[in-house]
Design a protein around this nucleic acid. Structure first.
Length: 936
RNA sequence: GGGCCUCUAGCUCAGUUGGCUAGAGCGCCGCCCUGAUAAGGCGGAGGUGGCUGGUUCGAGUCCAGCGGGGCCCA
């Protein structure tokens, strides 16, 4: 035993300080401190100075809470892109940003400070909101940094910075100059809880329960050509269906489709009018069996008919509308211009009044008569009762359907006609579509998707009735109330805001907001008051391209890349594009890359309510940022991404394989200095050249994967390479050479040369993703002349020089399959109990002599045994000479392998069984080869 | 209800322009090693390719419909 230990000391066993267990919770912060110490962001920036730029423009998250998994994913992906591009030789700055204004933060502030928002002074609320925003900027900044995201964290862009605010107003000024901004009374989505208008992008559609009510609109008169000459006994009514009875007080018409056929139906004692296509379904719903069609007529003939409102003393006309459909209801559509977009259009066409009996809180005003003072939700059942009392109710049921809810407070929204500021986008649509076509959309289906959205987009409501935001710089005439929207007013506001921030608009004396000589265009008055509305936050974030890219040194407009979740086709991508087009004349990005959504392990959406949301901070704490980073490279982020404990555990396993492979190689480089010891390529052994040839292939595929944003390919290819090419094949056959050969022998140095190339190349290939681990590897590599201070300053690895197609093809054809056969032959022996472990075995190959020759030439007889995992491999002869129980190679390979237990003694040093063991009297336990090495 | 996306072994992914017995890694089971050791090696068991039709000599790969999931919208 003593002797054996002596020989152990003559081996070159792996050594390294690189720990097997990562202990990421400790290692990552240490690496991050190192990056801070060397001022990594600035260092990289200086390094990249003068190179071609690659600008990824960050979409700003709301500064209203901890970051969630989707945001962690998003920033990591951006980090991967930026780091990759940097290594590829670009100057790729990353300026992170935050969206500070708007409801998300205002609500966070109201909650945090327990504010009664009706009692608080708006300026105070603004101050509190700003405070909340600042707090969460700090929180999120720390959280993003903890993920290892490299960026200009000391100088992020904030939408509440004065400069930024001024830029938003400058964009607005362009809009005004292009004359596309107007004020109008229109039904908009309105949140009664938040008491503000909402943009399309601020709605969430969710399953909700509504009433489903069938009611009567009694006929007062119908045009002659409709139902002419039909003898009718008893009352006649239009059958109408609605899910929002509370909108009935605002009803001013019933719409029918001009081209659909309508029927007069006798139903028991009365007669009803409805679309023929919905007759059967409606009768079933109403439970009426006793009915017959009396006559039929096209909808167009009904136009001009007069109906009686079911409970208000009001006569309402029958009108025509193309949007009436046979999907649901009766084909006779209740029309309230104050409560629906289409209804409003119809109202305009027929010059109907826009009744709007709902106040900002969703409470009925006096206009609603007997329902005054009720909230619209409370009114629903009372209106049904009223219908019942009036004998106008036919059926009241329930319906579950998708209904829009406020994105912030989760309440169901209503349509409410109010005076708001709009942008008319129609004049720009053609240009916008052209701009969209010139952008690269990844994945490609993004193009038709955003096109479809932009083609059908209604006017953009940009005003909000809240405190926390940038004011819309408009004035209203004190005398006649007419609005004054003028470039000079905006211009003056820009200077004011640039100097003092957006608060200044609200604080300044009105006189300071009114340019000299301004008079009301309607009444000539010179007295004005300021507008209190603020901008839709999407107008703010949609201006970021100009506010950031055009004002910061080192950036450029347009950007190369926007990278966000695919919900942003509707949001940031689209609104940035309109904004860019109108204010700058083009799209603010060249490529748009979208990600899927994070789902739970069952493929369900994550939500706080379902309790299946994963907190990235928890993942970082329990598993490490590297695991989160590797996860974004484990799944295909362009699709929806399932997540969960199981999946993270698999990522952890994958991480271990990568880490240990790197560690093993590192551990065999402890005495290697590439400048001194590297073996020239032509002197390297075939296995070493083969593995580097394979590495070149890997580098190609990985590079291609980065270029096409297929980061999951980076992980899967690299992982497979580590597991198969390295662990199973190359590193296994290398051990004998690395451990037992003389340290400075060319054979060992050749192996180390390969290991050095492999380690440095692999570390660089994964550096954009596994930034901490790659850095850790880098720091553990021996020093050499010209070694970069950090791996993040390294150039992208070039492995082309190692490509050797002839050798590669020969190995794939002749050599690699043999390894599998050798393994199976040994397994064959083990199954029969001849040996327990491979080194107890020796193999005899039966094959055409040229096959044998190829193996020997590729590997050498010595390494052939090592590569086979056994003590000895010999040539037995032609295939037909093989013993009957020999293993038969797979496929049609002309190879049989006879294995047997070696009779030779085990060399104490190299553990191979060799006949030569015992020949040397000084070292009776060693084989001849080991004797030679030991005594050399 | 509409538009778009998606559905390959328990899990994450590969599968050129339709063509041999559908692959990999992980996980799982069995064995080996103890000189990568809270590692490593070998072997094995796992797939009616969401479902149903169709085009074709032949479809995971093309077409239609249905279903599950997701995003967006009404």
């Amino acid at each position: 035993m003593v002797k054996r230990n002596d020989y152990r000391d003559t081996l070159n066993l792996p050594r390294t300080e690189f720990p097997m267990r990562a202990n990421l919770g400790e290692m990552e912060p240490r690496i991050q401190r190192f990056w801070e110490d060397i001022r990594l962001y600035e260092t990289v920036k200086e390094h990249a100075h003068g190179r071609p730029q690659y600008i990824l423009h960050d979409g700003p998250p709301f500064s209203n809470g901890d970051i969630h998994l989707g945001q962690a994913l998003n920033k990591i992906l951006k980090d991967v892109v930026v780091k990759y591009k940097t290594m590829r030789g670009f100057d790729a700055p990353f300026v992170p940003g935050w969206d500070n204004h708007g409801l998300p933060t205002e609500i966070a502030a109201i909650r945090a400070f327990d504010i009664d928002r009706h009692a608080i002074d708006p300026m105070e609320l603004r101050a509190r909101s700003a405070e909340t925003a600042r707090r969460y900027i700090d929180v999120q900044r720390d959280q993003f940094r903890r993920l290892g995201v490299r960026g200009d964290w000391e100088h992020p862009y904030l939408t509440m910075d004065r400069e930024y605010e001024a830029s938003v107003l400058e964009a607005f000024q362009e809009f005004v100059a292009r004359k596309c901004v107007y004020r109008g009374l229109k039904p908009v989505h309105w949140c009664p809880e938040c008491e503000t208008a909402l943009a399309d992008a601020e709605l969430e559609y969710k399953e909700a329960s509504s009433l489903s009510v069938y009611l009567r609109f009694p006929v007062v008169s119908l045009p002659e050509r409709a139902l002419a000459g039909v003898p009718v006994v008893g009352p006649v009514s239009f059958a109408v269906w609605t899910t929002t009875p509370w909108t009935l007080p605002a009803n001013v018409a019933v719409a029918v489709h001009p081209k659909l056929e309508y029927v007069l139906v006798r139903a028991g004692e009365e007669h009803l009018v409805m679309a023929r296509g919905l007759l059967e379904e409606t009768m079933k719903e109403l439970g009426i069996a006793d009915c017959e069609v009396v006559s039929a007529t096209p909808g167009s003939t009904l136009e001009g008919g007069k109906l009686k409102h079911p409970f208000v003393d009001r006569e309402v006309p029958v009108v025509l509308a193309e949007y009436v459909s046979l999907e649901q209801g009766t084909g006779c559509v209740h029309t309230a211009p104050g409560h629906g977009r289409e209804d409003f259009d119809t109202g305009q066409k027929y010059d109907l009044p826009t009744l709007q009996p709902l106040d900002p809180r969703g409470i009925f005003t006096e206009e609603a008569g007997k329902f005054t003072g009720l909230s619209h939700t409370d009114a629903d059942p009372q209106i049904v009762e009223e219908l019942e009392r009036q004998g106008m109710l036919m059926k009241a049921g329930e319906l579950r359907h998708q209904y829009p809810h406020c994105w912030r407070c989760d309440s169901p929204v209503v349509f409410r006609a109010t005076k708001q500021w709009f942008v008319d986008l129609e004049p720009f649509t053609a240009d916008a579509l052209e701009a969209v076509d010139s952008v690269t959309w990844v994945p490609p289906w993004g193009l038709p998707r955003i096109r479809g959205m932009m083609e059908e987009r209604p006017d953009w409501c940009i005003s909000r009735q809240r405190a926390w935001g940038i004011p819309i710089p408009v004035l209203y005439c004190e005398d006649c109330g007419h609005e004054l929207l003028a470039p000079e007013v905006v211009g003056q506001a820009i200077e004011l805001v640039r100097e003092n921030g957006a608060d200044a608009w609200f604080k300044a004396a009105v006189a300071d907001l009114v340019p000299d000589g301004t008079v009301c265009k309607q009444c000539g008055s010179k007295r004005f008051h300021r507008g209190e509305d603020i901008f839709d936050v999407w107008f703010e974030s949609g201006s970021s391209h100009a506010a950031v890219l055009k004002t910061r040194r080192g950036l450029r407009w347009p950007s190369d890349l926007y990278l966000e979740g695919h919900d942003q086709y509707r949001g940031w991508f689209q609104l940035s594009l309109w904004n860019g087009l109108i204010s700058q004349g083009g799209a603010p990005y060249r490529t748009v890359l979208t990600t899927g959504f994070v789902l739970d392990e069952n493929g369900r959406k994550m939500s706080k309510r379902l309790g299946n949301a994963i907190d990235p901070q928890e993942v970082v704490r329990d598993l490490g940022a590297e695991i989160l980073r590797l996860w974004v490279s484990y799944v295909d982020f362009k699709e929806d991404m399932p997540t969960g404990e199981d999946i993270f555990h698999q990522v952890v396993d994958g991480y271990r394989r990568l880490r240990n492979t790197l560690r093993f190689m590192l551990a065999n480089l402890y005495d290697f200095d590439p400048a001194r010891d590297a073996v020239p390529r032509e002197d390297m052994g075939e296995p070493d050249r083969w593995v580097l040839h394979r590495l070149a292939g890997l580098a190609d595929r990985v590079t291609q994967a980065y270029e096409s944003f297929e980061f999951h390919q980076v992980y899967h290819r690299t992982h497979e390479f580590c597991a198969v090419e390295l662990s199973q094949i190359y590193l296994d056959l290398l051990k004998d050479r690395l451990y037992t050969y003389p340290p400075t022998s060319q054979a060992r140095r050749s192996a180390q040369t390969a290991l050095w190339v492999l380690t440095t190349t692999l570390a660089k290939l994964v550096a954009p993703i596994l930034s901490h681990t790659a850095e850790e590897v880098w720091q553990h590599l021996p020093e050499w002349e010209g070694k970069e201070q950090t791996i993040q300053l390294c150039a992208w690895p070039e492995a082309d020089e190692w490509r050797d197609r002839e050798l590669g093809e020969r190995w794939e054809r002749d050599i690699v399959p043999y390894f599998q056969d050798a393994d199976l032959a040994v397994e064959h022996l083990r199954e029969h109990g001849a040996v327990r472990q491979p080194l107890e075995a020796e193999l005899a190959l039966y094959c055409p002599e040229e096959v044998w020759q190829r193996l020997v030439e590729a590997l050498g007889e010595d390494e052939l045994a090592a590569a086979s995992g056994v003590s000895k491999v010999t040539y037995g002869g032609e295939v037909d000479a093989a013993p009957p129980d020999a293993y038969v190679a797979q496929g049609d390979r002309a190879l049989r392998i006879a294995g047997r237990r070696s009779e030779a003694a085990k060399c104490e040093r190299c553990w191979r069984r060799q006949e030569s063991v015992g020949e040397d009297s000084d070292h009776p336990g060693l084989c001849a080869r080991c004797v030679e090495y030991v005594t050399r």
